[in-house]
Amino acid sequence: MRPYTVALAGNPNTGKSTLFNTLTGLRQHTGNWAGKTVVSAEGEFIHEDTAFRMIDLPGTYSLYSNSADEEVARDYIIFEQPDVTIVVLDATSLERNLNLALQVLEMTSRVVVCINLMDEAKKLGIRVDTDQIERQLGVPVVAVSARNKTGIDTLLDKVAEIASGSHVPKPVPVIYNDDIEKKIAQLEPLIRQTLGDRFPARWVALRLLDEDESLISSLRAKLHEQPATEQKEEIRYGRTACH
């Protein structure tokens, strides 16, 4: 069986590569500046006899400001459709980090939110109520310290549950004002007609309303290269890159 694919998304410097290295045994460079991930690295790991392929995406604050990094991360999530996306958050700066989490939750429901740097948070006297965050987001939330390797097993259990389909999260949707919601409702059926069920129609509607030219041209290129009936692109196998 093909391994499940797991993507790591998150703001810069939240410990994605550290987590990636811990799990895959690869040494993707980590650190503040020199080690910033620019291309996505890939590696494999086994959890409870199940194989996973992990993709370390570049860190971004958003998926909509159209920098090269953001396009890489956005296109990966929307076009490659990983079995699970782990959104890595910095426990010491949750407010800003949750922006990206909400953006990813609009694109896919197969998400585990991983709150990293819990050791730092503790030092600063920050207490994180993961149950409450889990209720408000509607997806599993796990607190970890990638550096001290705490919480990793729980994280992987959640990832495995979502990958196998034994748990199907229901993210709490962001509701916009009446004006926007009305337009989304108008666009959604047209988008389903044109694109089928390959892409989340609500999310595509929002991008169209946002006049997101970059997404529209990516989408156009994608439609051109593969027939509309194909569900998921065959994933290139066993490619690893180390930076």
Partner: peptide, 11 residues
């Protein structure tokens, strides 16, 4: 424009 988006994302 894009800068507005960026500023919103930064807080």
């Amino acid at each position: 424009g894009v800068l507005r988006r960026r500023l919103l994302d930064l807080g």
